[in-house]
Design a binder for these strands. Structure first.
Lengths: 204, 204
DNA sequence: CAAAAAAGGTTGCGTGCACAATCAACATTT
DNA sequence: AAATGTTGATTGTGCACGCAACCTTTTTTG
């Protein structure tokens, strides 16, 4: 591992633990075991460093989601696989997901122009889910829905469930929040079962 | 308005605009039009000031939610009124909702023991929704659901939808996100309509 | 190939600034 | 005359970032 990589790793750890404002150059360089000056040399300034860390996490995230959905045979399965992969990723410590929860252009940091590439990346996440929804409407596993809006609602639910789980003290959270979240999505995108006794015949 | 109140108002404005870290004593006292020293005199330190601001917002929030749900005649209506009131409150600039979105023990700030009263207040919000769900299961307007978990999921959806709407640049958000969010909830808590052609007779 | 030179990586101390919090003096109210 | 409210200059701290010196690797050149 090069020193540049060690710095990025340390940055991901610390941004996730302490948030943007409370993470200092000193802490990062110490945890990475390199000289303080290397930070500005490699990454310019603190904001750019954060951007590098955040984009790294986001790229892995998108890769995982893409892989998870590509394995599904129906649109409905794709949607549920998307949600499952989202929540699973956020629980994996090695994903450094906390970086995006704690800092991010969403709360802590002032949104600069550079941040736009993060939003664009997030837009790709939405688009991926949107595709699954469209697919589900075509293959008949999902009801007729406004695809883009529904995708955004589902992602919003993932965001909220994740924040609740990760940032709220344990004693205030319900035991099986994620499982219940998935069931909630399933119900919200279930087919109207008016033709309950007809459709089972359509199995191949 | 006393100077103490002016300070709290300015604090709510600025915490919401800039977040905790980027809001300074100087900015606050200038916007409030009072001397800098009054801040520590009245509120002790920055964290306590934030706590005062956040709790003020939270108390109004809980009051609004309570009023909105108390007017409903069924549990299902209560749940939907809760959601509508939640989202509406978050859009009202005079509610200073952004304080809780931008700072909050959820992201920016380090969680101290003092923050616990905020979590307890939030727990009351969950409890309020949970009551509506229980009521709906009793009066038959909602299906059988795990009340506490479902309440937490719905609040999570509110959190996420709100963050998407408020923190994401306009160009990346879908036009009617909130309306679609409400429809999503309606579908997720709808009664199984297996007895579609029987129940319409049960109208009074 | 060796010597020289350039380029890039690495060091940690120095600098200047922005900030939270203090404080002593002054004003107003009780 | 005591208590409480109000002032803003001052203080000390912690920080991001600059910088000059040093080390290591690659490139150039006779």
């Amino acid at each position: 591992m090069t020193k540049k990589e060690a710095l990025l790793k340390a940055a991901k750890e610390l941004f996730g633990e302490y948030g943007f404002a409370e993470t200092t150059f000193k802490k990062i360089s110490e945890r990475a075991g390199v000289a303080l000056g290397l930070l500005t040399h490699h990454y310019g300034n603190k904001e750019k460093l954060f951007l590098a860390a955040g984009m790294d996490v986001l790229n892995n995230f998108l890769r995982v989601l893409t892989r998870a959905t590509s394995r599904c045979t129906t649109g409905r399965e794709g949607v549920l696989a998307f949600c499952r992969a989202y929540l699973e990723f956020s629980l994996d410590p090695s994903s450094y997901w906390l970086v995006l929860v704690r800092c991010s252009p969403y709360s802590d940091m002032k949104v600069s122009e550079d941040c736009d590439i993060m939003f664009r990346k997030f837009a790709e996440v939405h688009l991926l889910l949107e595709e699954q929804i469209r697919r589900g409407m075509e293959d008949g596993t999902l009801p007729t829905l406004p695809a883009a809006a529904t995708a955004q609602v589902i992602v919003a639910l993932m965001v909220g469930a994740n924040r609740t789980r990760v940032l709220t003290p344990y004693s205030y959270t319900v035991p099986h929040l994620y499982e219940e979240t998935l069931r909630f999505v399933e119900r919200a995108v279930s087919l109207p079962n008016t033709s309950d006794m007809i459709s089972p015949a359509s199995e191949r």
